[in-house]
Write a protein that binds this DNA or RNA. Sequence first.
DNA 1: GCCAACGTTGGC
DNA 2: GCCAACGTTGGC
Length: 136
Amino acid sequence: MAHYWLMKSEPDAYGWDDLVAEGEGTWDGVKNAQASNNMKAMKKGDQVLFYHSRQGLEVVGIMEVSEEHSPDITTDPDRWVVVKVKPVRKLARPVPLKAMKQNPELANLAIIRQTRLSVAPVTESEWAAILEMSEG
DNA sequence: GCCAACGTTGGC
DNA sequence: GCCAACGTTGGC
């Protein structure tokens, strides 16, 4: 069964539209042990929310792991990894951080509890709650 | 643009 | 091996 995740990127550097334009993106440059461990745990087909940090501050789309982790040659390949992702679909309506913070179902969301974590797990119920917010 | 949070580095 | 200094991230 697929697992759920959330990954952050600054849209100035690499946003949802960039991923769509490329068709498949390599998620590189993550230099954080916890984030890296999460990437190592990702399996092909896992579903990933794309969150715009710094600008936007909202979940904008869903992507899918298309290739599992491999060494990150843009940083330190002995230490850090990349995964490849493909866009699945844009959310009907982006879900702002502000709204997620107000939703009691998301009180334990990893990115709310730990702001600076750029690659984070999302539980099945959190995933459902976020999609509900986008579509409801 | 600021600064809090927090991970990493390096001098001791 | 400790911990102060430093650098980076990301919300505000």
